[in-house]
């Protein structure tokens, strides 16, 4: 265990297992393979395993049997009805539903992998969350541009105001800059919110577990009580993290839906 708790939550060049076992990751074609890259691959495999199988099970409107499949179906239906359709309506919602599902479940799976022993959350890296935010930005912006025209969309970001022409000349460009900046920042915040939550949660966990290592050289009763308290607190925080894993996936997906919907309905 590193002295720096932040290091625990970060990407690494090896998987660490108990008893000092390590699985170092190679460097291929000049690119260092990292823990998060492997985890993302595992996430992809897990998602394909779950959702392709579920798709076969409910094909043609059949009902899924068993708790495991109903769990995923309940989440799918929740995102569909209470996030996408309730914001966008059924017509537009049907177009963007697969994308929002993808965002929600990719984030959820990445978050949940962080709760498995010796694994980690790829969403704890700003690189991953930034990519998700950029993809969302592109989907929203391209949707808006398809609807209002490539230039019309950007001009439409500025709300319509009735002003004398001389004020308009000064104000409109300023408003344009502000609106475009705020439009971009919205998506940037998506990335930062998710990253900060996942990274922060893992750091807190690492801090509490780190107390045990810090007290290792103390008297037995000190180390013992620190250990008990640390494990109890980490357990409680892990439960909180489980909630945060779902919550952040929901927030990202919900805001992505709102932002896409906003580009489809300008002022």
């Amino acid at each position: 265990m590193a002295n720096d708790p932040a290091a625990h939550a970060q990407d690494a060049t090896a998987f660490e297992f108990p008893f000092g076992l390590e699985l170092p990751l190679p460097s291929m074609l000049g690119i260092q393979i990292t823990k998060f890259m492997v985890l993302e691959l595992l996430v992809a495999v897990a998602m394909i395993a779950v959702f392709v199988s579920l798709a076969k099970r409910i094909e043609g409107g059949k009902v899924a049997r068993g708790r495991f499949w109903n769990l995923w179906e309940a989440l799918l239906v929740y995102v569909r009805n209470d996030v996408v359709f309730s914001v966008m309506g059924k017509k537009n919602g049907a177009i963007y539903l697969p994308f929002i599902w993808m965002i929600f479940f990719l984030i959820l799976f990445c978050n949940l992998f962080g709760l498995l022993p010796w694994m980690g959350s790829p969403t704890g890296s700003i690189a991953t969350t930034l990519v998700l935010a950029i993809v969302t930005f592109l989907v929203a912006t391209i949707s808006g541009m398809r609807k209002f025209g490539a230039i019309g969309f950007w001009l439409g970001l500025v709300p319509h105001i009735d002003l004398p022409i001389y004020l308009m000349v000064i104000l409109k460009p300023m408003l344009f800059v502000i609106e475009v900046a705020s439009y971009m920042i919205k998506f940037g915040v998506l990335a930062i919110r998710l990253w900060a939550n996942m990274f922060g949660g893992h750091v807190v966990l690492a801090v509490f577990v780190g107390f045990i290592a810090a007290a290792a050289d103390s008297a037995f009763y000190v180390w013992g009580s620190v250990t008990i308290i640390s494990i109890a607190v980490s357990l409680a925080i892990s439960l909180l993290e489980l909630l945060v894993a779902f919550l952040q996936a929901y927030i990202f997906a919900f805001l992505a839906t709102l932002f896409i919907n906003m580009t489809l309905h300008q002022h």
């Binding site: 990292t34 996430v43 992809a44 998602m47 043609g60």
Partner: peptide, 28 residues
Amino acid sequence: LALWSLVIFLILFGILYKFAFAPIAKAL
């Protein structure tokens, strides 16, 4: 990692769209 995430996202989305999300949406 960013480029890897993007590649994973695009390929995974392609696969899931074709074999999971579109059929699931249809089934629902």
